[in-house]
C-alpha cells in the first residue's frame, strides 16, 4: 500500500473535476428523480411529494405510447442501416485501393456537421410535395426515371420515423465505417495469409476469419449508435419541428418542461430516457473496464 503522502496530491489535483461531476452528473440525476416524485407544475418550485403518480400517469399516456413506438422504429432502422452500410464501406475500403483516403474522408465528412445543419438541409431534400410542387430527392427521382421511388419521406403515415432515420444514417454511417475499418486493420495480416494458403476465397476469409474478430467492435458500435438514437432530438426538431407524428421522449420532455412548465412530469420523462440509456451503457462500461484490467 502506497503512503498517503504519495497519492494525496493526485487526489487533490482531480478533486475539482470530481466534485463538479459528482454534483452536476450524479447529484442532478438524484435531484431530477426527486422532482419526478413531486407535483411541480408551474414556474415556482413545488416539492409536494406524490410518490410514483407521475410514472403511473405516463404508463397510460397516449402521447408517450406514440413516442415509444417512434423511438423503437427509429432505433431499429437507424442501427441496422448504419451497421450494414458501415461494414460494407469498411470492407470496400479495406481493399487497398487508390484514393482510399479521399473516399474515407468524404464518407466521414458528415461527422463534422451538426444535426441541426443536417436537418435543415435534409428537410429540403425530403420535401414531400408532389406534382408541380415536386422538389428535392423526389424531383431527382423523376428526372432519372425512378418515379416509383417518389415518396412522402418523414411524412409517410406510420413510418415517418424511418424517413427521419435516413439523414441520421447519412450522418453516422461513416463513423460506423471508421470503427469497423480500424477493427479490420488491427487483425494481423498473417491470419489472413494463413487462410489464403489454405485456399480460402477472399469472401470466405471475411466471413470466417475477419467477421468473428469484429465482434468487440460491433458491440461498441451498437452501444454508441444505440445511445445516440435513444437521445435523438435536434435532428427531428430541425427537420420537422414539434409534431406529434414524429414525437420522441426527448422532445416530449423538453416541451413538457420548458414550454408547459410541468416539471414533475418532465423530470419523469427524463428519468425514463436516462433509464433506457443506462441499461445499455452501464453493462458496457463494466464489460470494457473488466477487459482492460485483464489485458
Amino acid at each position: 500500500m502506497k503512503r498517503a503522502k504519495d497519492w494525496m496530491p493526485g487526489l487533490l489535483l482531480t478533486a475539482p473535476s470530481l466534485v463538479a461531476l459528482a454534483i452536476f452528473v450524479y447529484g442532478f440525476i438524484g435531484w431530477n428523480f426527486r422532482i419526478s416524485l413531486t407535483n411541480w407544475k408551474a414556474l415556482s418550485p413545488d416539492y409536494s411529494f406524490i410518490g410514483l403518480q407521475n410514472y403511473r400517469d405516463l404508463l397510460v399516456d397516449e402521447r408517450f405510447k406514440i413516442d415509444i413506438k417512434n423511438s423503437l422504429i427509429f432505433t431499429v432502422v437507424f442501427m441496422v442501416a448504419c451497421l450494414l452500410l458501415g461494414l460494407l464501406l469498411a470492407i470496400l475500403l479495406d481493399q487497398k485501393l487508390k484514393f482510399e483516403g479521399l473516399f474515407r474522408s468524404v464518407y466521414l465528412l458528415p461527422m463534422a456537421i451538426s444535426f441541426i445543419v443536417t436537418g435543415v438541409v435534409w428537410r429540403w431534400l425530403m420535401n414531400p410535395a408532389t406534382d408541380d410542387r415536386i422538389s428535392g430527392i423526389n424531383l431527382l427521382f423523376t428526372k432519372i426515371g425512378l418515379d416509383s421511388l417518389v415518396n412522402q419521406w418523414h411524412l409517410t403515415p406510420n413510418w415517418g420515423m424511418a424517413g427521419i432515420a435516413l439523414p441520421a444514417v447519412w450522418q453516422m454511417a461513416g463513423y460506423t465505417m471508421a470503427l469497423f475499418l480500424a477493427g479490420i486493420r488491427s487483425i494481423p495480416e498473417e491470419i489472413r495469409e494463413a487462410g489464403r494458403v489454405d485456399g480460402a476465397s477472399e469472401w470466405r476469409i471475411y466471413r470466417h476469419v475477419i467477421l468473428p474478430q469484429l465482434r468487440p467492435i460491433a458491440l461498441s458500435a451498437i452501444v454508441i449508435l444505440g445511445h445516440i438514437s435513444l437521445k435523438v432530438f435536434d435532428l427531428i426538431i430541425a427537420i420537422a419541428g414539434k409534431q406529434l407524428a414524429l414525437d420522441v421522449p426527448a422532445i416530449y420532455m423538453w416541451q413538457t418542461s420548458f414550454d408547459a412548465y410541468n416539471f414533475g412530469k418532465g423530470a419523469t420523462l427524463a428519468t425514463y430516457i436516462l433509464f433506457s440509456v443506462a441499461i445499455v451503457i452501464i453493462p458496457y462500461l463494466i464489460f470494457t473496464m473488466r477487459q482492460e484490467r485483464n489485458s
Binding site: V25, A250, M253, F263, A270
Partner: peptide
Amino acid sequence: FPVILFGMFIPYQSILIPL
C-alpha cells in the same frame, strides 16, 4: 474512472431541470 465516464453517455435531459 468508469464512474466519471458514465457522465459522457447520459442523456442531458436527465439533468436539465436541476441544471
